[in-house]
Computed example of a mutant assay.
Amino acid sequence: MNSQSSLSFIFLAIISAICMGTIGVLAKFAVFPAEHITFYRLFLGAICLLLYMLSTEKKSQILHKPSKRTITNGIMLASFMVCYIQAMSYTSMANAVMLIYLAPLLCAVIAHFIFSEKLTIFNLFTIALALIGFAMMMQFSLSIPGSKNESLGILYGVLSLFSYSAFMLINRKPSNSTPYQSTLVQLLSGALCMLPFLILSPETPSITQSFWLLAIGIIPGFIAILCAVKALRNLPSVTFGTVAYIEPVAVVCFAWWLFDETLNFMQLIGCCLIIGAGIVQGILSQKRVVG
């Protein structure tokens, strides 16, 4: 791969990270229940991906028998998304996204016991660094003054963390499905998980809400995932993983710009520690694979 091609795929990874980061903003503007937002993100994302595959040479990949693991991934994807959106309803966008980005470090710990991937002293150091960063983000308290529902927001954030970690761990094993097939099945199975919630508590969106829900399906649902698939096929995992840390930075910027959610100096340092620890963990994991 020449440098120009590499830069184009890095650009796609950046677009994916920024688009992923828009879900919090769009969800706040939509003012709709988290399970409904998750359904529209997954379902409309699947429809867009299906149309894309039909219009390209990928249409032959649409009809296939999905594996149980891919369907399970879809369930984890839906769980992660709905808990993440719920977390942002009770705590700040920065707190919610930083919890999610503890997932690579949690996966490293779980993989130590499940996949016999030994933790080195450097791995333990990055995990400790991220935990210190998280404690600083929370200002060393799970109940920030002035926010009665902060603890509930953190609980949803932790649930999204575990769901996302399970999603990552399940995806560790190679699959016979192509990235497009896996993505399509995961989006559809995740949407089906959310469908009962829509049936039990139906709500008709207004014209304005419909616009925001459509944007959710297209931007963080379709564009973000398609760009990620294309980038992952052509970039080393450490490069993509490092670029992905643009998402929490984007979320913090969106929160500050649009909703006046500010971070004090301690919380900014905590953000930097979590992001830095995640990047170092990715580099260490890549070196272990190469070695």
Rank of each mutant, 00 (worst) to 15 (best):
L12W: 04
F80C: 13
Q139H: 13
W256K: 08
K148P: 11
V97M: 07
I144C: 02
W257Y: 13
V185R: 02
N123C: 09
F197N: 02
V185Q: 05
A13P: 00
S165F: 00
M98T: 10
A13V: 01
I62V: 10
I62A: 05
F211I: 15
L7K: 15
I279P: 02
I75D: 04
S116P: 01
V229Y: 07
I75F: 11
A13L: 03
P236M: 09
M1H: 12
I283K: 08
I62Y: 07
S163W: 01
A46Q: 05
A277E: 03
L51G: 03
C271G: 11
K68G: 04
G24Y: 12
A30W: 05
K287E: 07
T262E: 04
P196E: 03
P66A: 14
L119N: 00
I154W: 07
I218P: 00
L184Q: 12
M88E: 14
V280K: 00
L273M: 14
N171V: 07
I279C: 05
M136T: 02
L7M: 14
L159R: 06
L214S: 15
S147A: 09
V185T: 14
V238M: 10
S116H: 12
S3T: 15
S163T: 01
M194S: 06
I283M: 10
F29M: 15
A87Y: 05
F29S: 12
A27P: 04
I23A: 13
L263T: 14
A191M: 03
Q267S: 01
S92T: 15
M93S: 14
G276I: 08
T208S: 13
F11M: 15
Y101K: 10
A34K: 01
Y40F: 15
F240R: 12
C193R: 03
I15P: 05
I62W: 04
K58G: 07
M98D: 11
L192G: 01
R69G: 08
L200W: 07
